[in-house]
């Protein structure tokens, strides 16, 4: 038997011992030591967990700083939803403001992924740190617009879609949105 082969056989044995014995024993020991590591468990509900404000919990519909519904029923949340648990219907008030006629989230399907919030162009739909959503009846997990709509602005305080968008609504005429000039007079030939 050549030296090289002997060496390689020894190396193999060493690797075998290291992998099958040392490594396993070390693992066992490391796990065993966790007996003395303090647990991470939070004793909910006696002890309330500290929730990050970006936690993706119960979904709400918010209002803009003027107190109007932010949701313009654009349907982007619904289409972004991977479990298709948002359904809504657009309607329009007298002033041309788009609103949801109904806005329904089936929380028994919701996976709290937050895609709806990301898709929302008006910051209307927001996920909140409220995770206490259990119900005894599954039907009670279907929330309508009346249940979802809150009176505040939620996480984003300043967003006001109609102050930016060019569509005229009550309280904001053509030419009054951000970066807008007064409506043109088509009868005029002046530049």
């Amino acid at each position: 038997m050549s030296t090289a082969r002997k060496n390689s056989a020894l190396t193999t044995l060493a690797v075998l011992v290291r992998d099958t014995l040392t490594s396993q024993v070390v693992t066992l020991w490391k796990v065993f030591r966790h007996l003395w590591v303090p647990t991470d468990t939070v004793q909910y509900p006696e002890q309330q967990p500290a929730m990050a404000s970006r936690w993706r919990g119960r979904i709400v519909l918010t209002r803009d700083p003027d107190g109007e519904e932010r949701c313009v029923a654009c349907n982007l949340c619904a289409v972004a939803c991977p479990v298709d648990c948002i359904a809504l219907q657009k309607t329009e008030d007298e002033s041309g403001r788009w609103k949801p006629e109904f806005f329904r989230i089936n929380f028994s399907r919701c996976i709290m992924c937050g895609f709806c919030e990301e898709a929302c162009p008006t910051n209307a739909i927001q996920l909140t740190p409220d995770f206490e959503m259990a119900e005894y009846k599954r039907q009670d997990m279907v929330w309508e617009k009346e249940d979802l709509l809150i009176s505040g602005t939620g996480k984003y305080h300043d967003t006001n879609f109609y102050r930016v968008a060019g569509k005229a609504v009550a309280g904001k005429d053509k030419g009054e949105a951000r970066n807008e000039a007064q409506p043109v007079d088509v009868r005029s030939l002046l530049p």
Binding site: A78, C85, N106, Q139, V142
Partner: peptide
């Protein structure tokens, strides 16, 4: 197509 699991949820979940 969106809203498959919510469009009829008001009637029956």
């Amino acid at each position: 197509y969106s809203g498959r699991t919510a469009m009829n949820a008001n009637v029956a979940v």
